[in-house]
Design a binder for these strands. Structure first.
Lengths: 111, 111
DNA sequence: CCTCAATGCAACTCGATGGTTGCACTTTTC
DNA sequence: GAAAAGTGCAACCATCGAGTTGCATTGAGG
């Protein structure tokens, strides 16, 4: 599918190393080896992370001669942001957060 | 801190069960036991997830008599969405994604 | 042709974490 | 006051995933 499940995208973003990778790839295209030289993990580890990121569409890759160059996809992140914003707003349509708790006089779900 | 690191919030969102919990809590306040009755995991498991969600500010809780009621915090999700959107846009200020790769005539980083 | 750099794939380690059960404690309710 | 419901805490288990090392392969260049 072109639109991965939201939790999957979030999971991909939920790792410090991947976050680092994305930050670098956000500044400009890089190869796995280049990333491995900069980050404190092996080239193979970088490769696995890149695969995860590619699966959820946060990274695109292109073979360029003997190396593969990767780049961060802003559009995908934007799409995620949009979805999360929508969801967040829908939550807010209720009384704002904890206030609603004080409103409810009693659970009265004793049935 | 009042503003957890982005990767942490994303990690919290990167679990299917927690996503389920958040969805329910987005519709209205619920207790851990109530959630456990609806979801296919134990009350203790729910409790752990709620703690994770509370740590990153996605959920607020309030003791109400013998039970504790939890509710999703839209503002926190909105804040995350805003950050992600900003980051995504910054990526886009470069040539859009893979196009930049084609632009670059050669790595010429042979030094 | 030979060497070096960049990859891909596979096997393995090991710590984090989702999930479970069991138990003790408090509040509501009959 | 006793039973029931809702929690919190702790011990335990199993799986997942991040990271490593090793090896084979392929493209670039002298």
């Amino acid at each position: 599918m072109t639109a991965p499940a939201l939790p999957d995208v979030c999971a991909a973003l939920g790792d410090a190393t991947r976050w680092e990778i994305l930050t670098r790839l956000g500044e400009g295209p890089m190869s796995a080896s280049a990333l491995a030289r900069v980050l404190p993990v092996s080239r193979q580890a970088i490769g696995k992370h890149l695969e995860v990121l590619r699966e959820v569409g946060l990274v695109e890759s292109e073979q360029r001669g003997r190396e593969v160059v990767h780049v961060a996809v802003g559009a995908r992140l934007g799409a995620l942001a949009h979805e999360l914003d929508r969801m967040g707003r829908s939550w807010e349509t209720r009384l704002s957060g904890i206030k609603e708790l004080a409103e409810r006089p009693r659970p009265d779900v004793k049935g």
